[in-house]
Design a protein around this nucleic acid. Structure first.
Length: 613
DNA sequence: CTAGGGTTAG
């Protein structure tokens, strides 16, 4: 049987002729036994599939073997089944159970093996607990690293803390692998303070530890700190690799830092860092989120291999740039390339259709999604409701929301309300508004949309009532936000922002700007007037909207075209475009607006102020 | 056998 297998595996994998095991120190096994063990190890390692492995397993079970050889072979089978991509974790568990006293090696493999399956559970943690209870074999630093990784995957904070205390008790605190695992674990649990503490105490910070720190900070949105760590890392003479750069690029995406993002891209090319799937996807996402859809596309088309996530990020990019046709085109190419769309892909393509108001196509994608066996979730329903509302099919959308068994979602109801406003359906709007305010009474955006609805049907009394209600509930809108990058520094401005160091010069400049715009004959439209009524802004002033701060800063500080990013949906804000056009003309400067409608996420219960203009 | 990575509606 064994020789048959050797033959089957072909001449390329001939059994090695050197015999290092004969000289292995401290072994009580005779060379014949050792030879047999090595033979098994070799065969198992070279197994082409599970079928052959099962045959080998059967062979081992039926042949009389010394106990030590038997256990050795079974532990090798456990390792193969648990860790090889060809393996099978269920089989690994089975074989593991057949070993009377599994070595720490087998335990480790099983712990690692069952944390890398697609639906990870706390099983590896339970295994570790069982291991520590029995007291044999003694865990080693590998065990600690694996179980910490398992805790990180399922963000089992309490369990991880206990492992950390064991690490210290058992003296594994000085292992750099264990330290790095701890940094990563705390980072995954969003416990940045604890991650930093472990990291600061590391005498030798390796690349992986730096990367874990950076990705941890990006995870909690501490983008500046992430970039600071990246700089510190380079100062410490540690060269980033592709994995590090994925986190750095993600940080740029989250910050909308196009300059730094482009610099990182240039770094990647200059240092010939291999742009794999993850890095490619991160770059596509970064360029799209920084408003540079052309470069996102450029990176995307140059990717040699694209998986579902790569395609999805490109589709999402087109979607939030309002380029529905491109999104649909890319989606078609994806299907042609026989890459399976997943639930995220459909969120992208449906939101693209919603942005473009392409109903028929959107509904077709919806059916396709069902055909693909994807259960529609809140997000998908949100897209389809938004699609119907934007194209005026509000009643149909309302029917879906009220008859489908999906959880009530403020955003979906807000889409309905916007649809009602658009079609001036005050009766349905009233019902929707009441429900929405019940669902989310502290979100200023809700009041603004409802107020817009009342004003569109001239129900002024209801509008002032609403204003009172808003005041009583002490609801204040979170201001819009715009940013501009000057010499690699991103300057963020909130509406009415006072915190910028040069705010005095800026304000003077803006007053002049407002005056010149006013003199040009521009007058605010209904929504600006509404804004004044609600927030008692000074008569005659243009309003210190965030993008005007950013433009003013750009005009003052650069000679290059002023590129600003706005956290608003410009497609519904005609006034913004108009003001910017006028400013551009007056100052004879090119002003480029990057629409960053989705780039900043506001916490629930706040307002993105889209209808604030 | 150690540790770090990408896409998610409005």
């Amino acid at each position: 049987m064994t020789s048959q297998l050797v033959r089957k595996l072909g001449s390329a994998s001939r059994f090695p002729s050197d015999h290092p095991w004969i000289t292995r120190a401290g072994s009580f096994k005779n060379s014949q036994e050792l030879e047999e063990e090595e033979r098994f190890a070799f065969l198992i390692r070279k197994c082409p599939n599970m079928r052959v492995l099962r045959q080998l397993h059967a062979h081992i079970l039926t042949r009389p073997l010394p106990l030590s050889t038997f256990s050795f072979a079974l532990s090798k089978i456990t390792v193969f089944c648990a860790l090889s991509p060809l393996g099978n974790i269920d089989y690994a568990r089975l074989v593991f159970a057949q070993i009377s006293r599994p070595s720490i090696f087998s335990w480790n493999s099983l712990i690692k093996g069952c944390s890398k399956i697609q639906n990870p559970s706390k099983e590896p943690i339970a295994l570790f607990q069982k291991l520590t209870e029995t007291g044999y074999p003694v865990p080693n630093s590998f065990t600690m690293a694996f179980v910490l990784k398992a805790c990180a995957i399922v963000t089992a904070f309490e369990e991880g803390l206990q492992v950390h205390s064991r690490v210290l008790k058992d003296g594994f605190g000085s292992s750099s692998f264990v330290q790095t695992s701890l940094v990563n674990f705390y980072g995954k649990c969003e416990e940045i303070g604890l991650a930093t503490k472990v990291f600061d105490e590391m005498p030798d910070r390796n690349l992986v530890a730096w990367t874990a720190m950076i990705s941890g900070h990006v995870r909690v949105g501490a983008v500046d700190e992430a970039m600071g760590l990246f700089r510190e890392m380079q100062k410490a003479g540690v060269e980033p690799d592709a994995v590090t750069l994925v986190s750095v690029v993600s940080a740029c995406a989250a910050a909308g830092a196009l300059d730094i993002g482009s610099w990182v891209h240039a770094y990647i090319e200059k240092h010939s860092v291999l742009t794999d799937l993850e890095l490619g996807t991160a770059l596509v996402d970064m360029y799209a989120k920084c408003g540079c859809i052309e470069r996102a596309k450029q990176v995307f088309v140059h990717m040699p291999v694209r998986d579902t996530r790569a395609w999805s990020s490109m589709i999402m990019g087109f979607a939030y740039h309002g380029l529905s046709e491109d999104a649909i085109g890319v989606f078609r190419q994806m299907l042609e390339a026989e890459v399976m769309p997943d639930r995220v892909t459909f969120i992208g393509i449906l939101s693209a259709c919603a942005h473009g108001g392409i109903v028929s196509e959107g509904l077709r994608f919806w059916s396709l999604m069902l055909e693909c066996g994807i259960e529609p979730s809140v997000e998908h329903y949100g897209c389809i409701v938004d699609l119907l509302c934007r194209t005026g099919l509000v009643e149909e959308a309302y029917r879906i929301v009220t008859t489908t068994n999906i959880p009530s979602n403020p955003a979906t109801w807000r889409s309905l309300l916007k649809g009602c406003k658009k079609k001036k359906l005050s009766n349905l709007g009233e019902i929707v508004a009441r429900y929405l305010l019940q669902l989310e009474p502290l979100n200023a955006e809700n009041y603004i949309v409802i107020s817009n609805l009342y004003s569109s049907v001239s129900q002024w009394e209801k509008m002032s009532e609403l204003r009172k209600e808003m005041k009583e509930n002490d609801v204040k809108p979170i201001p819009g936000c715009s940013s501009i990058e000057v010499d690699g520094v991103v300057h963020e401005f909130e509406m009415g922002d006072q915190s910028h160091p040069e705010v005095k010069i800026l304000r003077e400049f803006m007053e002049e700007m407002a005056k010149r715009v006013w003199d040009s004959g521009y007058r605010p439209s209904v929504s600006d007037v509404l804004h004044k009524v609600m927030y008692e802004e000074k008569e005659g002033a243009l309003g210190e909207h965030s993008e005007r701060f950013a433009i003013a800063y750009g005009l003052l500080k650069t000679r290059a075209p002023v590129v600003i990013r706005v956290v608003k949906n410009l497609r519904v804000c005609g006034d913004c475009h108009e003001v910017i056009k006028i400013i551009s003309k007056i100052y004879e400067r090119e002003i480029i607006v990057r629409d960053r409608v989705r780039f900043h996420k506001f916490v629930e219960g706040t307002c993105s102020c889209k209808d604030y203009w």
